[in-house]
Design a protein around this nucleic acid. Sequence first.
DNA 1: TTTTTTAATTGCTTTTGTCAAACAGATTTT
DNA 2: AAAATCTGTTTGACAAAAGCAATTAAAAAA
Lengths: 311, 311
Amino acid sequence: MSVNPEVVREVSEFNNYYNSLAELLNRHLADNNLSLSGLRVLVKLREEEDQCTAGKLIANLGIDGGYLSRILKTFETNQLISKRKSTMDGRTWYLQLTPKGRKLLEILEEGSAQQVSQLLEPLGTEQQLALAGAMKTVRHILSDDAKISADDITFRRDLQPGDAGFIMHMHGSLYAKEAGYNLDYEAHICKTFYEFLEAYNSSKDQVFLAMHGNQIIGSIAVLGHSRYATQMRWFLVHPDYRGLGIGQRLLTEAINAAKEKLFQKIYLITTAQQVPATTLFKKNGFRKSGEKHMPMWGLQLTEERYEIDLI
Amino acid sequence: MSVNPEVVREVSEFNNYYNSLAELLNRHLADNNLSLSGLRVLVKLREEEDQCTAGKLIANLGIDGGYLSRILKTFETNQLISKRKSTMDGRTWYLQLTPKGRKLLEILEEGSAQQVSQLLEPLGTEQQLALAGAMKTVRHILSDDAKISADDITFRRDLQPGDAGFIMHMHGSLYAKEAGYNLDYEAHICKTFYEFLEAYNSSKDQVFLAMHGNQIIGSIAVLGHSRYATQMRWFLVHPDYRGLGIGQRLLTEAINAAKEKLFQKIYLITTAQQVPATTLFKKNGFRKSGEKHMPMWGLQLTEERYEIDLI
DNA sequence: TTTTTTAATTGCTTTTGTCAAACAGATTTT
DNA sequence: AAAATCTGTTTGACAAAAGCAATTAAAAAA
């Protein structure tokens, strides 16, 4: 993949900037006679719990072996870690934090939190949240193991100001990018929201949102259009968050909500081109009840109607 | 300002993570016999151009005086910097980079860029952009001198998929937060967009967007409702970007567009509570042509109508 | 003028980190 | 099975990075 020079510049500048900041944030380490490397070792040991060897630390942290050996020795004499000889290989030792080591880490983290708090103090609530979000993004893009997991996702069932607009935004931009729909599609979505908001009634309508932090990353809704039938709409999961089961979760919630509200059937309109979505619909008991070829959103598409009976 | 513990956690974790990454990114320094402190000194010297003293470096970089003195000495013997005795104070020296020093910095930055490129290589284009954006955000929130300037803002006059939704989102969430409007307001905005998108005609309608990167941070539009009059709508600048003259710029563009399209007047509807906006309208020649007290968006508001004649 | 303060330097020390050699257990080769 | 090789860890020697305290010289204050 080619590299954008603008991006390189920003990353370099960021690195430059962060180097100064890091100095500030790591100042408290010295108070506990710990080097940055020492800290990283302790953190890693806690992470690996019990199955960590010196070699693993060397490989993972990129520390020189000799230096590490000394670090570990002082840790041992200070009773921050304990060693346990491997039964398989007489050369290797399994390293683990002692309660004292754990405690120190906690103290360290407390100190770090204090430094950070001081840094954040002058910022407004929103800026703080924006900062956390941006940092999470950085980490998440750069590190393999900071991948978003399903645990990071929360769900909301109330519609707050700004939500509708954002869902429309997601639909407009993502369908344009992924399926090539034109502006008409967003106009259509806008119309559906207009109709919905005009007649919003929580006893028959239900929106679900998948959130990452305070960012909407997925949506679905069931809208009671008659006594018996409810329409499912706005089913979408942001591409960065696909494959985590969020779509299924939203769909389940929507179906359950429709059942709870005693609707007899759910129907939805989609296009044949939305393969992953239609696959999911079928897997959840929906069946196709109609299709129609027509020009839509600047393309030649096949509009499909799916339905499911809820008893 | 109180500090959100979730944010503290993320910042701490980020710091932890970035410490490892920094090691990687700063590895090339050793190739040039430079410590991180040394680099920071050089960078600072270039920044300050000519008026930098050792004291200033100590204060700004937080380096120990003795250590700095030695760093500077080796820099001088390597002809990376030159000293010039102050005429005001016989104790202080003004430090400046020599061409050789400048050159070294460039080489260093080239090396850094290479490291960064390697890091970015496996990422997709979008991820790279997202990364740069997030880093910029971090820097921008934390550092005083990375404040956004008017130069960073660009303007766009086309409406792309996703834009409408995002403008609605901004209106919904910001007016809720800043003015306490309820969901009805977003429904209203949605209605205005619905009407607009149904009958969009570029010969009479014009949207302007203020952008920061690829993020919409301000908007305005003039919508030709009749042969003679055009309505101004969706005038909003995100709070993080106020005070940079973006509002005025948008307003000017909108008025000019209305003139170009040969409309005779512009009118707009707002509320008396929008003091900064109405002030700007008046300053630009608008006059109040009506007002009406009424309950709106969950509050008791005064709806105001403003007009301006364009000859 | 004397005293105090301030900008920078120097001497001494500790901490941090690197490199190469050594060592001991494990694995492979002969 | 003995020798050779490889691997995980330790040790010794050393260099670089950084901090602390005392010193010097010019400036400012008393």
